[in-house]
Every structure is written in C-alpha cells, then in structure tokens.
Amino acid sequence: MKPASFEYRAPEQLDELLELLADDFTDVRVIAGGQSLVPMMNFRLSTPELLLDLRRVDELGALEHRPDGALSVGATVTQARLLRQLEQQGGWPVLAEGIRHIGHPQIRSRGTVCGSLAHHDPTAELPALAVALDARMTVAGPQGRRTVAAADFFTTYYETVLEPGELLAEVVFPAWPAARGWGFRELARRRGDFALVGAVATVDRDAAGATAEAVALVLFGVGERPVRLGGVEQALAGKPLDAAALASVEPLVAEAIDPVDDLHASADYRREIAVQLSVGALADAWERSSARV
C-alpha cells in the first residue's frame, strides 16, 4: 500500500498555485490535511500526477470573524484549530459539536475543514453542517473568485461544483444568533466512525419565544449529498416544536430521503433512524433556543 509516483509543489503564492492547478494536461490534486486523500492514494485509488500542497499559502490559513459576525475559515485551517477557537471564543456550538464527532484528535489535528467539504463524503459531518448553517463557499479559480451557497456546492458522492482548476479557498459561516437553538444527532457503528445517519437542526424562535420562526434540518448519510428537509422546515415554521408537531413531520422525513444499502446498514434502517434522529435533533434545538432578542 504505497502511493504511486507524483510530482509535488508547495508554492507560496495563491496565484502561482492556481496557475499550476489550471494545467489541463495534468491530473492535479490539491492537498491540505490529506486525511481523506492520502488513504486513497495509499490504496492507489487516487493517482494524481501533480500534488499541490496548500500549506505555504499564508492567506489560505486565515481563521477570522468578519465585521458582519460571520466566521471565515481558510482552506488550511484544521478541524482541531477551528474547534479550539469555537471552544475558547464561543459561537456556532453546533459546529463545535459536529467537529467533535469527526474521527479522533489524531485526524482532526491535520484534517482541514475545507478539505472535508471539498472531499464531500456524504456521510461526513461538515458538509451537512455547512448546508444547515447556510455557509458560503469561496471558490478560487483561474477566473478569480466566486461564491457558492453550501446548498448548491455538493452534487453527488465525492463530487462538488468545483471545476478543474478550482479550489475551495474558504468557507464562511454566517453570524450565529445567541438565541439560536441547535441539535446534532449522529448514529455511528463506533465512536469516531463516519455516520450511519446524522441530523443537524437549528431553531430560531420568535420574539415571544412561543414558536419557531425559522427551522433548519439537514440529514447526512441518507443519500448522495447532505439533504435539507425544506418540507419539514416549512411545516414547523410558526409552530412550537412540541411532541405533536414533531410527530407530524415524521412522514415528511421518511419521504424526503432516499438512502442506500451498504455494509454497515440497510436503506430501510437508515430511513427509520433518520426519522428518529431528525425528531431528536429538532427537539434539542427547540429546547436550546430562546426568544429572539
């Protein structure tokens, strides 16, 4: 299990990197943490001709709060670094909780946030979190930069809208209202494994705190990409998320997803669990939310 031969560059300037990336005649891959890519290379399932390491490009390492309250996470920011920042400075608690479910410290210490997003394993936590939090993906390429909503970023298994020559330069998580409630539920075979099924939910209550003004619910491990359950979100908007309301959306969850069988669980099982985790995550989010200020 040794990787096939490749060339390696680690330029310091983003322009130079993008230029190398834009080479149409070479199979180029970018590497940041490599926690998904290197195993595939060791199995020789991925055999790029040129590997572009992002590590020396300083501007890709930024992790900063923007004036509008958003959090921008550059391409080389590790999951561990983001988690530490969130734990120390607060905000985006659902993101912190989700990251804690990624692998183990030995993986998070090298694996990057953007790397996981660009790799797009649909059973991974971060793509679903990005969708649930309406993250904006900054894509850099030969034509400059473009912004893609997380909801539009993930296409199918291990595929995104990234075109050849493009890379995910940063992900921006919009400001996190202090009163927002959140739920994160995941069922995995073992601690640290990719999810069989997972659910991310957020709830923003109205000013009176009596009903949910906005609800987000995103499932992962149930299809080719993170699945946002717009029908459920709409059905719950304007209501208190009590047991009756939650029970009423169960059929909507089951209908909205199209999971598949694999070694670890059947499609039927995933559907069944998706319903439970959805309800659980929504209930948690309701519980943790408070009146809008």
Binding site: D242, A243, L246, A247, E250, E272, Q276, V279, G280
Partner: peptide
C-alpha cells in the same frame, strides 16, 4: 416502540 413512539420518548 420504534418510529413514532421512540421519537416522542426522545423529545420528552
């Protein structure tokens, strides 16, 4: 008591 019942339990 799976599906609906269990969900309700978790909510409670």
């Amino acid at each position: 008591g799976a599906t609906a019942g269990a969900g309700a339990t978790e909510v409670a």
